[in-house]
């Protein structure tokens, strides 16, 4: 039995999705699927199968089509993850500017590797691709939203302290 989006997502999330839907022609609701998945993910922390089904139902799309979208774009989170997801860009420009050092420091400090979550559920570490901000690397993205640039072991320490 599919849970409806109405029962699964908060009124606020649904209002946000409706706002996205309104950007597109009336017969093009699926255009809002990327935003809808993002909004659902922000609320739930990750995209559980039931969440994907409810988004599909809300937008009148085949569930598998929504799942295709959720698995195509890197920033959708298809398994549970830590409260703070930290995605470090390791692509060449960032690498040249010291991303590997920063990544190693993060791994060592958190005691986890890329794709892993700390036992206390606080942090998940991910390797990312180019974030289009290379000039300020090394950098990381916090919870798919906030960019932290010019990272060094010192700024990493400060960042981790702030993220409870």
């Amino acid at each position: 039995m599919t849970l409806s989006a109405q029962s699964l997502l908060s009124a606020d999330s649904l209002a946000q999705i409706d706002k996205e839907v309104a950007k597109y022609p009336a017969d093009q609701k699926p255009s809002a699927v990327m935003a809808a998945l993002r909004i659902a993910q922000v609320e739930k922390g990750w995209l559980a199968p039931a969440t994907i089904e409810s988004v599909a139902q809300y937008l009148g799309m085949p569930t598998i089509a929504v799942y295709e979208v959720a698995t195509f774009y890197n920033m959708y989170q298809l398994e549970p993850c830590g409260r703070h997801k930290i995605t470090v860009c390791t692509n060449l420009p960032c690498q040249l500017q010291g991303a590997d050092t920063v990544a190693d420091y993060l791994k060592q400090k958190l005691g986890i590797g890329f794709g892993e979550t700390t036992p206390d559920g606080r942090f998940t570490l991910k390797e990312g691709e180019c974030m289009g901000t290379c000039g300020s690397g090394p950098l990381c993205l916090h919870n798919n939203h906030t960019m932290h640039a010019h990272l060094s072991p010192e700024t990493v320490d400060k960042l981790l302290d702030e993220l409870k």
Partner: peptide, 27 residues
């Protein structure tokens, strides 16, 4: 004018992939 978000796929910079993506599909 409206904003449409990407969500982590370089290939969507390719113009027709980008259009597919706006249409709510894989890019």
């Amino acid at each position: 004018v409206h904003a449409h978000q990407g969500y982590g796929a370089y290939v969507c910079g390719e113009e027709t992939a980008l259009l597919e993506s706006i249409e709510g599909k894989k890019g």
